[in-house]
Simulated scan of single mutants.
Amino acid sequence: MLFAVRMDVDIPRDLDPGVRADLVAREKAYCRELQKSGEWLHI
């Protein structure tokens, strides 16, 4: 069964741009791995 889910993420505006870029890159890689493994196909 699939559910429609909405998630709002607020990254602090004063966060260092390098830290933000690293965080976004790691989250993207994690999501791709979940899709590739079949654990969460519809991310």
Rank of each mutant, 00 (worst) to 15 (best):
residue 23 L to N: 00
residue 10 D to L: 14
residue 3 F to A: 07
residue 38 G to W: 13
residue 30 Y to R: 13
residue 20 R to A: 06
residue 18 G to Y: 01
residue 26 R to Q: 09
residue 32 R to F: 05
residue 20 R to Y: 07
residue 6 R to M: 06
residue 13 R to S: 08
residue 36 K to C: 03
residue 18 G to L: 08
residue 33 E to K: 15
residue 27 E to T: 05
residue 27 E to C: 12
residue 23 L to D: 00
residue 18 G to F: 02
residue 2 L to N: 05
residue 29 A to K: 15
residue 38 G to D: 12
residue 7 M to S: 09
residue 27 E to S: 07
residue 5 V to T: 10
residue 7 M to Y: 07
residue 22 D to L: 08
residue 11 I to C: 06
residue 38 G to A: 09
residue 24 V to I: 15
residue 11 I to D: 05
residue 41 L to S: 12
residue 12 P to A: 14
residue 42 H to L: 11
residue 43 I to D: 04
residue 28 K to E: 13
residue 42 H to S: 12
residue 9 V to S: 05
residue 37 S to I: 05
residue 38 G to I: 08
residue 43 I to H: 14
residue 41 L to W: 02
residue 22 D to K: 11
residue 39 E to L: 15
residue 27 E to I: 08
residue 27 E to R: 08
residue 42 H to G: 01
residue 5 V to S: 02
residue 30 Y to F: 13
residue 12 P to L: 10
residue 25 A to F: 02
residue 8 D to I: 13
residue 36 K to L: 12
residue 17 P to F: 03
residue 16 D to S: 05
residue 28 K to I: 05
residue 17 P to N: 06
residue 22 D to P: 00
residue 13 R to A: 14
residue 4 A to P: 01
residue 14 D to W: 11
residue 5 V to W: 06
residue 17 P to M: 02
residue 18 G to H: 06
